[in-house]
Design a protein around this nucleic acid. Structure first.
Lengths: 157, 157
DNA sequence: GTCGATTGTATCGCGCGCGATAGATATTCG
DNA sequence: CGAATATCTATCGCGCGCGATACAATCGAC
């Protein structure tokens, strides 16, 4: 096995095995946890978890109240994940869940007044995280596109 | 200014909002789930989850049985995550957990014979995932280093 | 219209993942 | 030495995240 660009510590690793530090999948795995931790101090002031913040972001960006299925496709999460999460946000008074009159199978998710108003209180967060990332905007955008491409390819396979 | 005058109007707030698809954090978040899904068919033949596979990878790469704390630092996971996970792997017969004689606070994690032998059955997986990623090896290594840099910066801040 | 298939949500069980905390062992300092 | 302090692991509660499953509403073929 050939040496990689950032080899593991030879003091603690066996030469023939690939350590987590060498793996692309681990870099993503650990980066997501670090990202969640970076958001935590900002979000806990709002009483939100990181996945809840993503759902709220989707709702803030939506032109009309989406269905559970639309959120599921956009966020790539199963209904078994979204339904309890949405119920918690509903209990917090941030959104409402209503069966669609046209198609009673679907559930429309609409922001409440309080849910809309929370958007303003999140406006500064992205900038804080970007600064903390130590990367330029161009680097971040390029990284986002590369990671999105990887994700889409993995989903197709 | 005029926008904040009507913050609850979805017709005016939607265009200014950053959707999850625009965010670096979401690309990572969704890529990790896609990665876990890509590994799933391979790993469930071995009876492993994806985090369990990462722990096993760390153990395969280690020269000597690490402590829980060493695994915690390497994988960037809390003991509250690792302890139950390690107990499950111990129940499966893949490793042993023994208090260190030198320092009774520490717990040494050692692979069993079965645990060692499992490594061979995972040898093909990385290649399958790399192929499925649709990216070249150089691209993957560059991506790994960029993501690791982002993670390390976020951890420092 | 009726029956079968499909679609959209919800429920359940299990494995993370972490903050808060507890408890035991080691270390440091007086 | 002995007490305060630090370190290491484990426990608990809660929120994801998903596969499997259930169930109701809709659609399609006839």
């Amino acid at each position: 096995m050939t040496r990689t660009a950032t080899p593991s510590d030879p003091e603690t690793t066996a030469p023939q095995a690939l350590s987590p530090q060498d793996m692309v999948c681990f870099s993503l795995y650990s980066a997501v946890h670090a990202m969640s931790q970076a958001y935590r101090p900002h979000l806990e002031k709002l009483g939100l978890t990181y996945p809840q913040y993503l759902v709220m972001s989707a709702l803030w960006a939506a032109k009309a109240p989406p269905t559970v299925g639309m959120l599921s496709r956009q966020l790539q999460l199963e209904s078994s994940t979204l339904t309890p999460l949405l119920k918690r946000l509903e209990t917090m008074g941030l959104l409402t869940r209503r069966r669609d009159a046209e198609d009673e199978r679907q559930v429309r998710i609409a922001l409440t007044e309080e849910g809309h108003q929370m958007q303003g209180r999140t406006a500064h967060i992205a900038g804080c995280i970007a600064e903390q990332s130590g990367m330029s905007v161009d680097e971040l955008l390029a990284l986002r596109d590369q990671v999105s491409r990887l994700r889409d390819n993995l989903r197709k396979g």
